[in-house]
Amino acid sequence: MRAADTASARDAASGGAPLLEVVGLTTTLVATGASVLEDIAFTVEAGETLCVVGESGSGKSMLALAIMGLLPPAIRIRRGEIRVHGEDLARLSPAEWRARRGRDLAMIFQEPMTALNPVMRAGAQVAEVLRKRRGMTDDAARGEALRLFERVGIPNARARLSAYPHELSGGLRQRVMIAIALAAEARLLLADEPTTALDVTIQAQILDLLNDLRRERGLGLMLITHDLGVVAEMADRVLVLYAGRMAELAPVAALFDRPMHPYTRALLASIPTSEGPRTRLVAIDGAVPAVGAMPQGCRFRPRCPHADARCEAVPPLVAHEPRHHAACWATAPEDRAS
């Protein structure tokens, strides 16, 4: 009840703005000024799942940490806005940003093995959020932690409240992480490869759980993954990152049917299929360039089969269809690619 009330109050306050709106976000290394993320812009609506995909080093995790305000000290936000419920977090003081964490936006981390405090009971790690962020008494927090444990599907939940993380399986630990993320009733949930460290069967269960919670609570879900199977399963829209820049942003069906960026095409081609004769897996030659050693112009140029002289200039992100954007000279519509 309370959750719905505060959520609708917040929606009203933000005047129908999207849950998350990132505008022109650029982060740089403090030491060299080299850019890590460049000119990132997208939205996540309530009830929507946006998948962020890309190879290791594409900046997916950095994007989530930047939105949370948890970037390592060596990286700094240089430009851009991070609007959550219409409020630009990037302009807040660190203390104000911290006050938004948990309440307005929450994050589920990749490694359930290391992301929980090893010397603190699982229930206490949920209950402290309830006490500190929602002002509950110890008793109320314990009861609510139990309800959350049951909601995220932890069997034998009452006994598990007093378990230490090392006494739980990887899947259960990730469920505890999800309970923590839900505890302060944030509407925006960032999940950084939440299933990468888990068994395949457990992966599906965790994804189902996230999907159910999204529907049930109207969460906006930003799901970081490198697994295109997960994308097909979960995404409403997909953001493809390459070397810290947006390559393509599209509804999931359009992306799989009509990928417009050569990098997206290469990613899709690298999925093994069970149909047809067995062939060598398609791999993308080379690797993502390192921060500070980026090529001029299009960052995919050194690995791109279609690269030509135009690619020495940075390709703008242009709309192919109303909600389908890609940053490539070769595939851009005629009138835009001079």
């Binding site: 911290r98 981390f109 992301a115």
Partner: peptide, 29 residues
């Protein structure tokens, strides 16, 4: 620098609380 301290930070807990409740007990071991 451990992940679980980042988790605690992501909860929006105060720095002092994170250091004393999550950092210290682990550092004491």
């Amino acid at each position: 620098n451990q992940d679980f301290v980042r988790t605690a930070d992501a909860k929006g807990l105060s720095r002092t609380y994170v250091v004393l409740r999550h950092g210290l007990p682990n550092a004491l071991v």
